[in-house]
Design a protein around this nucleic acid. Structure first.
Lengths: 199, 199
DNA sequence: TTGACTTGCGACCGATCGGTCGCTATAATG
DNA sequence: CATTATAGCGACCGATCGGTCGCAAGTCAA
């Protein structure tokens, strides 16, 4: 039960920190939401700050495992429509997975207070997606699906607008469907603009 | 002195809220930073929350005055280089103006807690810049400086990456110079991709 | 000059915060 | 079976929080 309780505490912390922020979360409510007494929590973490640090460790490790390794790169689509499909699948996942949504919200809220949150936020919101798509676009250029250009610049130009709409979903979840449609429209616009003339 | 003190309190609140968040800011420190006793503050605001609301009122009014009206639209540049110049001037201002930087940070931090902050955040981070550039791009298309296309889509594709780099400056100010260079590079890339062949 | 109003101050208040302590029930270990 | 470690609990602690109160100094109109 020990390991389980520790994980449940971290889950509740993610939930509350991502909603109210670190300073705006109090431990009584956090533990109460688990049906746990406040003092019981201190069996598993020695302070509120240690919860925060453990949560960040977890997020950093998860990010590294999921997006950090070179083997995890997405396959190069063999049609331009394939790029759109892949994009929409990724977006659909990242916008609806509760854990990832809460992670982004937490990083958004705490990025100015904690250095590790700051650098992880930059990965999540700026460099991560772009680095993922750079080799994709390079491969699509090799296959003649996209015009020759700087693949890193294309990846930035492609992922930044998508990232902006994902963050709109985090902020105003009721606009999620509309945002996903706008992402699809942008993606189609993008392949039309950057696509080679044939096909 | 009354009006002045009230404004100074709002200034200090913007500074502290944007750094530590609403929940993470305490009134003793806030007033102490002004050389003011805590109880004196309550002569001007009846609660901490009223400071918050007044600050939001101010930000909403400022935004409406500065970016909301149709007369404040930027002029349509008459060369593609003019677009880059205009962009860099705007970016330079928005990235170095302390008040605007703090406003963005505050909206970033509090967007999930307060509905008015939420909607103002969407304007600042998504729709505002795009709406500003839509008529610019429409005008440039009329002048034959850009290929005919949906000006709103172009504005979104142009402003979202720029906005992402502006937010990088907010998050990691030491990268400001690099970010501005990347904005210039992106802007040049953009006019190359969307520009008409002549000129 | 006087009386009302404004703006400042420090002492104080109840509530809530993160955190501790002693106790108990349970489960694993010998 | 006895022992020991684990994980739960409520009571409690000092510190800090937002907010109040009574008082004093300055301002300004009558």
């Amino acid at each position: 039960m020990a390991k389980d309780t520790k994980a449940r505490i971290l889950g509740a912390a993610l939930e509350m920190f991502s909603q109210y922020g670190y300073a705006g979360t109090n431990i009584r409510e956090l533990t109460a939401s688990l049906g746990l007494g406040k003092s019981s929590m201190y069996r598993h973490f020695e302070s509120k700050e240690e919860i925060w640090n453990a949560l960040l460790d977890e997020m950093i490790a998860y990010y590294a495992a999921r997006f950090g390794s070179a083997e995890r790169l997405p396959p190069v689509p063999d049609t331009r429509e394939g790029l759109i499909d892949m994009t929409l699948r990724m977006v659909d996942f990242t916008v609806h997975d509760a854990r990832i949504v809460m992670t982004r919200k937490l990083l958004t809220i705490e990025q100015f207070r904690d250095d590790r949150a700051r650098s992880l936020a930059t990965k999540h919101f700026l460099t991560g997606l772009a680095e993922m798509f750079t080799p994709v676009f390079a491969g699509m250029m090799d296959r003649g699906l996209l015009r020759r250009d700087d693949p890193a610049m294309l990846a930035f130009a492609y992922t930044a607008p998508i990232s902006a709409l994902i963050r709109l979903c985090d902020r105003e979840p009721e606009k999620t469907d509309d945002a996903v449609r706008r992402i699809e429209a942008f993606s189609r616009h993008f392949v039309r603009v950057y696509g080679t003339e044939r096909d």
